[in-house]
């Protein structure tokens, strides 16, 4: 019993990690809160769903198309909507991502209706035995896939030239500008990667989770918790925090209260915001 709770917690955690790490990248580099992260997850899920429906291929095979498509979408959002308001007050940027979220989420509702949809992967409900535990094949794919993508992101950020530029910009946008880095392009690429991670997450989750217009809402908000717990701009931290939250939520749901399992995460979030902001947010000046 506990083992299977743990496994489904890990699946949830893997999704949280991907969405959260993507958000963290955007947050760390562009310095905006992307309120549309959850809506993008939902959009990726529908994206995959429609390809599956039209082409009749296995959902896992849509992964490259969805990832690239979502990256393009992210790139577009940053270049057309966010870059023009970089100089304006932070509210403008925040409310723009908020508007994007409303548009995508309710646009999906208007276009595709509130019906719950689902896809079948080759794995179906197959399970296999692992260390004496029965593990769903799609659950294993989700967990492994999330781990691989996080690892790849980590390698990309630390080993590639673009990764170095991204880290430079996230640390200090001004001096990066001096060093001849095109900051706006780096922003757009960071947003693209953050969105692509969400795309991957959506493909990995739809063989297990239902697809409906509001499906992303919870994930989008929990991604903020991942960012706060994991530390700003810290990809590994986000990955670990995501897993922690997924497992915690699942255990709480099964053994304490299913209804309050989401509320408990928000509580963790608020407590973190309230009592451990020092480790996360650097305070330069004392004012209040």
């Amino acid at each position: 019993m506990f083992a299977s709770v743990l496994v489904s917690g890990l699946v949830l955690g893997g999704i949280y990690s991907l969405v959260g790490a993507g958000l963290n990248l955007i947050f760390g580099v562009v310095k905006i809160i992307n309120f549309a992260q959850g809506a993008l997850l939902m959009f990726g899920a529908y994206f995959s769903y429609w390809i599956v429906t039209w082409l009749g291929i296995d959902p896992y095979l849509t992964l490259p198309i969805v990832a690239v498509g979502m990256a393009l979408l992210g790139y577009l959002i940053q270049t057309t909507l966010i870059n023009p308001v970089l100089k304006q007050e932070r509210t403008s940027q925040l409310l723009i991502t908020f508007g994007i979220s409303l548009l995508i989420q309710n646009g999906a509702l208007a276009l595709w209706g509130p019906d719950i949809r689902f896809v079948q992967s080759f794995a179906g409900y197959d399970t296999f035995a692992f260390l004496g535990i029965r593990v769903g094949v799609s659950a294993a794919i989700a967990i492994l896939g999330a781990a691989i993508i996080i690892f790849l992101l980590f390698v990309f950020l630390n080993k590639s030239k673009m990764g170095t530029a991204i880290r430079a910009v996230s640390q200090q946008s001004d001096s990066a500008l001096l060093a001849g880095i095109d900051v706006k392009r780096v922003y757009a690429i960071a947003f693209a990667i953050g969105s692509a991670m969400v795309g991957v997450a959506s493909v990995l989750m739809i063989p297990i989770y239902d697809i409906y217009p509001l499906m992303g809402e919870q994930f989008g908000v929990i991604a903020f918790i991942v960012v706060v717990l994991g530390g700003l701009g810290n990809v590994q931290g986000a990955a670990i925090a995501g897993v922690f939250l997924g497992v915690t939520q699942n255990i709480f749901a099964v053994y304490v209260s299913n209804q309050l399992s989401v509320a408990i995460l928000f509580l963790i979030f608020l407590i973190t915001l309230l009592f451990r902001p020092q480790g996360i947010f650097i305070r330069k000046m004392r004012v209040s």
Partner: peptide
């Protein structure tokens, strides 16, 4: 107007919000 397509109104709200923030913050 959009009773048969719930969500359309809020989606339009999203558009209004984006346009406002871009051009008339």
């Amino acid at each position: 107007t959009f009773t048969e397509r719930p969500g359309t109104d809020i989606a339009l709200y999203g558009v209004i919000l984006i346009v406002l923030m871009l051009f008339m913050p």
